[in-house]
């Protein structure tokens, strides 16, 4: 069974380190990639599409990032969607509980969920279960 491909996009490197550790603790059967901004993450997805590599099944996407933020990532991800052969579940992860962000998030069909930090182990299990239905 191939590993579930998880993509973490956040400019907070400690968050990336901690979340990666938590995911590793949950399952060994996960392939985890991390990027510190949306621009790099998009490059990676583009690369997956172009080279026929497996696309991430789950993306935990931060909102506020330098170079290209979460919203910018979503807009450009939309343009790539037609070229994707497998579903990509994007969870918007943010420290903000601002209503404006929640409302804005509803405008993107690409989003599967909205998660407020801290992202606990239980929350990660819940996401993985929802996406992979115990197939991880």
């Amino acid at each position: 069974m191939s590993k579930a491909n998880i993509l973490l996009v956040d400019d907070d490197e400690i968050y990336l380190y901690l979340t990666e550790r938590l995911l590793e603790g949950i399952s060994e059967n996960l392939e985890i990639n991390t990027y510190t901004d949306g621009e790099k993450a998009l490059d990676y997805i583009g690369e997956c599409i172009n080279e026929g590599n497996e696309l991430p099944g789950v993306i935990l996407l931060d909102v506020n990032m330098p170079f290209l933020d979460g919203w910018g990532f979503l807009k450009e991800f939309r343009n790539l969607k037609s070229k994707m052969t497998t579903p990509v579940h994007i969870y918007l992860v943010t420290s903000s509980e601002r209503e404006r962000d929640k409302e804005r998030a509803k405008e993107f069909d690409e989003l599967t969920g909205y998660v407020v930090k801290p992202v606990s182990e239980d929350k990660l299990v819940e996401i993985l279960t929802a996406v992979y239905e115990n197939q991880w």
Binding site: I14, L18, R21, L22, V63, N64, S95, P118, V119, S120
Partner: peptide, 16 residues
Amino acid sequence: HNLRSPVTNMTVILDM
């Protein structure tokens, strides 16, 4: 947001 991030990270670290 930027203040909350280190705090949430600390929470996670403490759990760990």
